[in-house]
């Protein structure tokens, strides 16, 4: 079992929902984003505008794990690279070592509240109780390990069942994000990677990221599709009465 994500560049519309969902899910301090959007255009004769929704790659051979001097950063059985906030000493070796710049050190000035110097909103106050962030330690995307753990404990399947799936994947209006088990050749992620030639960022670092990207043209569908999908959707919401 190795959890992975596929980001479809032909679908992402740069709406920032993934960032907002992650903030809510993890009550992120104002100065921090776990996922980030990198937008770019290539220019030239056949220009392409692309937006890369990036987050920690949960690298299989993770430089951050290699360098962590305290054992706070570790790789779980399921491939997720986790940080134990109670062990992290804040040396930032991993921050510098992550070649994808996916780690952020939570300094005091990154945690001044949503409205610095004014009030702490009720949401923030609730967040302090529900999700622990420690100033002086390093953070990053954890593939929503809390959701995965709680979900799989109930027998749910990450990437298929919403409750066990990362928040950003659930919210993406473009359905540009897909989650699942890379070790399972029949999973949606494995299928997308093989069918659409999924690629990883900077394979030359030999980190073997668990986040893949795919791209492609819109509009190859040649037959007039008459599938039963819309009807299925309808049943799911029980309307039409």
């Amino acid at each position: 079992m190795r959890w992975g994500m596929v980001v479809d560049l032909s679908k992402c519309v740069r709406c920032y929902a993934c960032l907002a969902a992650c903030r809510i899910e993890h009550f992120l301090p104002m100065g921090i984003n776990w996922p980030k959007l990198v937008a770019m255009d290539t220019g030239g004769d056949d220009p392409t505008v692309s937006t890369y929704s990036v987050r920690c790659n949960q690298c299989k051979d993770a430089p951050c794990v290699e360098v962590c001097p305290t054992g706070a950063t570790q790789q779980r059985e399921d491939g997720i690279v986790s940080i134990d906030q109670d062990k992290c000493v804040g040396c930032r070796y991993c921050v510098v070592a992550c070649p994808y710049q996916n780690r952020t050190f939570l300094s005091k000035d990154k945690d001044q509240g949503f409205f610095p110097g004014i009030i702490q909103t009720d949401f923030e106050k609730a967040g302090k109780k529900l999700y622990k962030h420690q100033v002086g330690t390093t953070e990053k995307c954890n593939f929503c390990a809390e959701r995965i753990d709680a979900g799989t404990a109930k027998g749910l399947k990450p990437g298929v069942d919403r409750e066990a799936t990362p928040a950003c994947v659930n919210t993406c209006p473009a359905r540009a994000l897909t989650f699942g088990d890379l070790d399972d050749p029949n999973s949606e992620v494995s299928r997308l990677i093989s069918e659409k030639k999924g690629f990883q960022l900077h394979p030359e670092y030999n980190t073997d990221p668990s986040v893949y990207f795919i791209d492609g043209k819109i509009g190859q569908s040649d037959e007039k599709k008459v599938d039963d999908e819309p009807q299925k959707e309808l049943k799911a919401i029980g309307v039409g009465d």
Partner: peptide
């Protein structure tokens, strides 16, 4: 304390920023 899309709606649980 939390807000997310409703999967049992015509937008299938997605929400924007």
């Amino acid at each position: 304390v939390h807000i997310e899309g409703n999967p049992e709606s015509p937008t299938s649980g997605t929400m924007c920023s």
